[in-house]
Design a protein around this nucleic acid. Structure first.
Lengths: 181, 181
DNA sequence: CGAAGGTATGCAACTCCTTGCATATGCCCT
DNA sequence: AGGGCATATGCAAGGAGTTGCATACCTTCG
């Protein structure tokens, strides 16, 4: 499992509600581990039942009540154990790579179309990540230790998106040389 | 769904048994879409039941009998439809990135250890992919159309592994500047 | 002869994740 | 008053993937 660990990790520094976590997973941590609110709420219940999280109901005025979750000692211990385990690498699983095997068998237009869309999409992400780096992570060596790891995750995201954009260019150039083109 | 499409794709050019497919998914296509034999056999049955594959029992001498699967016309049509659909991008979901958020909270040694291991592993993959490219995909422009797409998938793998190795170097360098180091 | 290993296929249980639906409060704007 | 939007949480069904186990044939090697 791993979403559970991502959630526990998000709670390292602060207590959050399911709703807060959902938004957090739409940015930062969510760049590396996507999760829907349904999954998050379910996982929170499970983690609370296991004693890794403590749930506190918080009545609110002017908006619906919420439930705030905090790491317990057991939760912290479980997290540390997990960090010590070595994780396995999973292949990326991107439909686009499978579709490339169809070039030469069927009309390449849809694949080319998708490559163009991807180039734009990954370009947008790249721009977003770079903006974040400029604003919050300039001069990585001078960051406090706590933020160096996060910077590195961001750096990986940047490299990944840039790599993908470059590859899209290569792919579009090569597919321009097809018979049918 | 998508493993089903990867399987159908693997059968574009040739008829294969579940066992053959399992080995095929350990290399080539499997670099981009991993699958266990259990999953493959299950999916084959389903695809045959849906009429997208035709199953033929093949008695063999000297080894166990096998079942060979071939694309049906309906299978080809389903594949073409799928290629025309645009696929969504899924984030990578790598534990290591989540673990980076723990730097500064707990002993960074295990993370550093894992980064070193990853550098080696991705380096090995990079070497493997580059060997394949040299042997079978030198001069991509001159490849027959049918192999250009496969080359591009390979090229993506190469870029990805190289990117990851470079990033590991960056990460190890930065984590070397930690207080505790 | 027996053990190891490659060939070949499968079941069952479980976890993880997605999708669609459902509900409720309160704000702001028209 | 009504619609849209943000806040806040949840159920249920099903698809996708993992893990462990099971079976059976045949060859090779010691």
């Amino acid at each position: 499992m791993a979403l559970s660990h991502a959630i526990l990790t998000a709670l390292l520094d602060e207590e959050l509600s399911g709703y807060d976590l959902t938004r957090k997973f739409e940015t930062s941590l969510g760049f590396f581990w996507a999760a829907s609110h349904q999954q998050i709420y379910q996982e929170l219940k499970k983690l609370a039942a296991e004693g890794l999280l403590a749930a506190t109901a918080v009545p609110q005025a002017g908006r619906p009540d919420k439930i705030v979750y905090a790491l317990t000692d057991a939760g912290r211990r479980a997290l540390e154990d997990w960090v010590r385990e070595t994780s396995r690498v999973k292949p990326a699983k991107d439909d686009l790579f499978v579709k490339l095997y169809h070039v030469g068998h069927t009309d390449p237009a849809p694949v080319i179309e998708e490559l163009r869309a991807r180039r734009e999409e990954h370009g947008r992400r790249l721009a977003l990540y770079e903006r974040i780096r400029e604003r919050h992570y300039a001069e990585p060596e001078r960051l406090p230790d706590r933020r160096k790891g996060i910077y590195l995750a961001l750096a990986a995201g940047i490299r990944q998106e840039r790599m993908f954009v470059d590859w899209c260019e290569e792919a579009l150039a090569l597919l321009g040389t097809l018979e049918g083109a």
